[in-house]
């Protein structure tokens, strides 16, 4: 069938038209993606280069000043109290956020995979927060974590008290670091420890994102052939052993993807914290993304803001670039 068609095309005057079409076909794909490729080249790569350049200049104030200052801006941020706090906070937030999302996501996926009745309802509920803006989430949780006063608690404190559990937490309104005062090595300006105000922020973020991880794990679980589990059961494995030695190892690639997706979200987190605490109290919930925004657009320190942006980009790139390369390699092999 195909052969006859080709022969027809190649015969006579059709041949010339066919050749012309092949030539168009060679150029047309490039024309079709040209607008997007150009846009990405300029708005992503060009602008990153431009930001990198700005980070080496003296630009502060409204008017651009492209006098070269070198790496001085970077030296400045790394020796600033605020940026050091940001890095500590990001690390703490990332740990809570990753563990919370992975554990809750996996547990929810396993539960939903038990073929229980009402599965669609529960799945819808767990994924609901994903449809919301981080700003909406921030506004709700900010009120849930309002501590109120000793005699007149509000939010979660009030809820727990109505169940007879006294909970006088200060939540996001304290600048305290745990363990008390933290631990500060001589070369740092910032005490290391867990800024307690970061925990409510992490809870809100986990509330929003763990449904996503659940969906990833659920897709993975449903892709595991039942025969594999059945074979292990026939070999006398208990349900737990089936999960631990058959199912869990097969979910490792998903865990890796989830870690990278969550990790980069956590490095970039901005909206949620802006809506919940604005980075306060003090800098207890401040992160590089907020620092960059305020340094650049509130204090007009464009060069320093650009330096913060570049450091943030490098942190994300270290995580994402190997992942992207790995993804495209495994895809080509498939």
């Amino acid at each position: 069938m195909a052969r006859t068609a080709t022969r027809e095309v190649e015969s006579g005057s059709v041949k010339g038209a066919w050749r012309r079409r092949v030539n168009t076909d060679r150029i047309a794909p490039f024309l079709m993606i040209a607008p997007s490729v150009a846009a990405i080249a300029v708005f992503v790569y060009g602008f990153i280069g431009w930001t990198g350049f700005v980070s080496l200049t003296k630009w502060h104030g409204i008017v651009a000043d492209y006098t070269i200052r070198g790496l001085q801006n970077y030296a400045e941020i790394f020796t600033s109290y605020r940026f050091q706090t940001d890095l500590r906070n990001t690390l703490v937030f990332t740990i809570f956020f990753l563990i919370g999302c992975l554990v809750i996501g996996l547990v929810l996926a396993v539960l939903l995979d038990l073929n229980v009745r009402g599965e669609p309802f529960f799945r819808t509920v767990y994924l609901l927060p994903m449809a919301l803006s981080f700003i909406v989430t921030g506004v709700i949780w900010q009120w849930l974590f309002q501590p109120g006063t000793q005699g007149n608690p509000t939010g979660l404190n009030a809820l727990f008290q109505s169940f007879g559990i006294p909970l006088a937490q200060q939540w996001s309104t304290t600048a305290a670091v745990w363990p008390a005062g933290g631990w500060r090595p001589g070369w740092l300006l910032v005490p290391l420890g867990i800024p307690l105000a970061m925990i409510p922020v992490a809870v809100a973020a986990i509330w929003q994102m763990s449904g996503f991880i659940m969906a990833m794990y659920l897709a993975g679980l449903r892709g595991i052939p039942d025969d594999l589990r059945e074979a292990a059961r026939v070999d006398g494995a208990s349900e737990w052993q089936v999960f631990r030695y058959v199912v869990l190892p097969l979910l490792h690639p998903i865990t890796l993807s989830a870690l990278i997706i969550l990790g980069h979200i956590s490095l970039k987190i901005f909206d949620l914290i802006m809506a919940m605490t604005g980075g306060g109290p003090g800098f207890a919930t401040d992160v590089p993304a907020i620092n960059m925004y305020e340094t650049t657009f509130k204090s007009n320190e464009y060069a320093v803001g650009a330096a913060i942006a570049i450091v943030l980009l490098l942190l994300v790139a270290v995580l994402i670039v190997p992942y992207l390369i790995y993804n495209i390699r495994t895809e080509t092999q498939r």
Binding site: P29, V37, G46, L312, L324
Partner: peptide, 27 residues
Amino acid sequence: WRFRGSDTLFTAILFGMFIPYQSVLIP
């Protein structure tokens, strides 16, 4: 309509999805 280097190009486009937008805000 893949061509030589189209997968690399695709990866380069995808990178734009992960960047912190702070790194392009000033320009």
